[in-house]
Design a protein around this nucleic acid. Structure first.
Length: 274
DNA sequence: AGCTACTCCTGGTAGC
DNA sequence: TGCTACCAGGAGTAGC
């Protein structure tokens, strides 16, 4: 599932194809992808605009359109961005296509239709509720500890909360909690300063390593814009490894459900109580 | 405040 | 082999 490393990879790889390109057309094949806008309104807003920047915030790919506002793309479960010759068949999962002035098309493909392509005049309204970037300067061990102490929630759902920290999803939360030796149901206000530092380090180290490997692919869905699978799945310690031995201690990796999410952990490495 | 349940979707897979 | 039932899950919403 696309999380921060997959979205960062997507933004990096489409950027050189899009910078300076003018949008010449917009076709909408699944209206709900627009998140409530009409196809005509969307077309009016974006056709003629020029892409001034391609960045990432949380799990959003942000196309800066200058005075025309911005396009915000959320891949959710199965979304992908690709840039292909406009005459090439886009396949059955094309939801939104944006024609480019070089004869190609930026395509949003999405099997499960949960993804979104939003036009906004100003991204700040969408981004206002997001927590800090885990690889950004605001995310320090001290800030993490203070945030954990300010809440009384289980670590797993808290780390998935985009308002607490932006960009983590189910995979990298499970991996970070294992690396920090913290049980997913441990209460956030009971985490020690030492454990908070370990968690901070684990989050940063794992995300950076996953970005280096262009994210994680373990099913048919996530591929880079160039069609390659990511490689970080080979380094998973717990995610998807239930029933197999923990690489750290040899105990069997467990899978439980926490907040409707499959949650993988090692009960020997990650104690429920300190 | 924080929890659970429900919704949106469909390809893949387990079970028969 | 072919069918059905169920599962995966990010994020928004509602209800307790």
């Amino acid at each position: 599932m696309p999380e921060l490393p997959e979205v960062e990879t997507t933004a990096r790889l489409v950027r050189p194809h899009l910078l300076g390109r003018r949008l010449t057309a917009a076709r909408v094949l699944w209206l709900r992808t627009l998140g409530g806008a009409t196809a005509a309104g969307f077309q009016r807003a974006v056709v003629g605009a020029t892409v001034r920047g391609v960045d990432r915030r949380a799990k959003w790919v942000v196309l800066d359109l200058g005075a025309a506002g911005a396009l915000l793309v959320h891949l959710r479960m199965t979304g992908r961005l690709v840039v292909e010759p406009a005459e090439d068949d886009a396949g059955p999962w094309l939801r939104v296509g944006l024609g480019l002035d070089d004869g190609r098309e930026l395509r949003f493909l999405d099997v499960r239709k949960f993804g979104r392509v939003l036009h906004v005049a100003e991204p700040s309204a969408v981004f206002a509720a997001l927590g800090p970037e885990p690889l950004g300067p605001e995310f320090t061990p001290e800030a993490l500890l203070a945030g954990l102490r300010a809440r009384r929630r289980a670590l797993k759902p808290l780390l998935l909360d985009q308002g607490f920290i932006a960009g983590l999803g189910n995979i990298y939360v499970d991996e970070a909690l294992h690396a920090a030796r913290l049980h997913p149901l441990r209460r956030s206000d009971e985490v020690t300063p030492r454990a908070a530092r370990a968690l901070h380090g684990a989050i940063q180290r794992i995300l950076a390593a996953a970005i280096e490997r262009e994210g994680s692919s373990f099913d048919v869905f996530y591929r880079t814009p160039e069609g390659r699978p990511g490689e970080y799945q080979h380094l998973f310690q717990v995610y998807g490894r239930d029933g197999q031995p923990c690489h750290a201690c040899g105990a069997t990796v467990q899978k439980i459900v926490v907040g409707q999410r499959g949650t993988h952990f090692c009960a020997r490495c990650q104690r429920a109580k300190p």
